[in-house]
Amino acid sequence: MPHVLTTHGDCGAFTGGVFAFDVEARSVRQLILELENRFPGLGDYVERRMAIAIDGEIHQDAYGAALGEHSEVYLIPKIGGG
């Protein structure tokens, strides 16, 4: 199962301080739905505020991005620029 991690305090408020856990998901869309299911509010928060780094590659607003069986999934704040 993909392994979800975050070092960002925002997510801890939804997970009760849990910063690493496994999820059953094969795409970013499934991940968001699963996060919302397990930690109410987190899926919505991730969708609005967070980017998702899959195996080191940052994805933003990408429902279709695939998660591998052993993917490392990092939740980080969305990124803009100048």
Binding site: L5, T7, H8, A53, D55, E57, I58, E72, L75, I76
Partner: peptide, 8 residues
Amino acid sequence: AVYGPTFR
């Protein structure tokens, strides 16, 4: 990275 993902 300190902010999370693994660099590649």
